[in-house]
């Protein structure tokens, strides 16, 4: 009887604790939602002066001249898209090969273990170190190559940036690609193999069509990263605010111009123009990564239900 009283009277039933906990976790959720909404609002609000001043010409002007307060985003847009898509183009054969190798050919064993660690290592190297290495190893390497082509041997430029970016994004699309290839049901593969198909035929006619949307999502996510990547690109792209003449020309991306000029931006209009670039970058990379994740989520839900 005494023990019974012990449990009833001395237990901590604190309605305040319960209340605070429930409110606390909800508040944290609201805080995260608020954070993202506020990021968007702040960027929009701070871009208004620039937008008021340039209007739509901001998106069509190829001139970026802070001295004369002329601000147009086209140069950076071109620089960003060229480097990102070039990087994507370079990376796809590699990331696809690794996805296929790890997802289908060598699921286990020491070779795949080594390759997986290599991918993890590549993903772990900070962007600034990629840039540093690019600047002192890759750039001197590119120069004679450019001389051979008969163009001005800057070394730095869109091509060099794209090469570094390609190395940086391979881990992302490769590990995602591997996951979606592993999701392909074994029955499908076995059915094709039992009909006498070679592995190559199973891959091109069964696995890749099945995993198509997932691989696409992986590439989208890699593109999202490439668009927003700052440090490595800033260090090797050459920081030139003019339209590039070729893929070997120095250029600037949206992220790198912000990194270079933000702290030096004198005057509200200059700063606001840079923030407007930031807003554009935020919107584009957010849309791309949300679409990518949406595709992947849909795929894995499909998988659970089948």
């Amino acid at each position: 009887m005494q023990e019974e009283d012990l449990t009833i009277t001395s237990g901590k039933i604190s309605p305040t604790g319960e209340f605070l906990f429930q409110k606390g976790i909800r508040l944290s959720g609201l805080l995260i939602a608020g954070l993202v909404v506020c990021i968007l609002i702040t960027l929009i609000f701070q871009s208004i002066p620039a937008f008021k001043h340039h209007g739509l010409s901001f998106f069509f002007s190829t001139k970026w001249d802070p001295v004369f307060s002329e601000f147009g985003v086209v140069v950076f847009l071109v620089g960003t898209l060229l480097t990102s898509f070039l990087a994507l183009l370079i990376s796809i054969p590699f990331s696809l090969s690794i996805s296929i190798l790890l997802g289908e050919y060598l699921k286990k064993g020491w070779i795949s273990a080594i390759l997986k660690s290599c991918i993890e290592l590549l993903a772990a190297i900070p962007s600034v170190i990629y840039g540093f290495w690019g600047l002192y190893v890759l750039v001197p390497f590119i120069r004679p190559f450019e001389m051979g082509l008969g163009i001005i041997p800057y070394g730095v430029g869109i091509f060099t940036a794209a090469l570094i970016l390609a190395i940086m994004i391979i881990p992302y699309s490769a590990s995602l690609g591997r996951e979606v290839i592993q999701l392909v049901p074994a029955e499908l593969k076995e059915a094709a193999l039992s009909l006498g198909a070679t592995r190559f035929e199973v891959m091109t006619q069964v696995i890749l069509p099945y995993a198509r949307s997932g691989i696409f999502a992986g590439i989208l996510l890699a593109l999202g990263r490439a668009l927003g990547e700052t440090m490595a690109v800033t260090m090797v792209i050459g920081n030139s605010n003019f339209l590039p003449e070729s893929i070997f020309s120095p250029s600037n991306t949206m992220a790198s111009v912000i990194a270079n000029e933000f702290t030096e931006a004198t005057g509200d209009l200059y700063l606001s123009s840079l923030i407007e670039i930031g807003l554009l970058l935020f919107i584009v990379s957010t849309i791309i990564s949300v679409i990518g994740r949406y595709i992947i989520k849909k795929l894995s839900i499909q998988q659970q239900h089948s």
Binding site: R26, G29, L30, I32, A33, L35, V36, V37, I39, T42, L43, G224, L227, G228, E229, T230, A255, I258, A259, F262, L274, I275, G278, L281, F282, S285, T286, I288, S289, V290, R293
Partner: peptide
């Protein structure tokens, strides 16, 4: 709220680091 926060987390994950710096 969970649904909305889930989208926000995705947005945050895709936000370029330079934008976080600006903010």
């Amino acid at each position: 709220l969970s649904y909305f926060v889930r989208i926000c987390v995705e947005v945050l994950q895709g936000t370029p680091s330079i934008v976080v710096g600006i903010i």
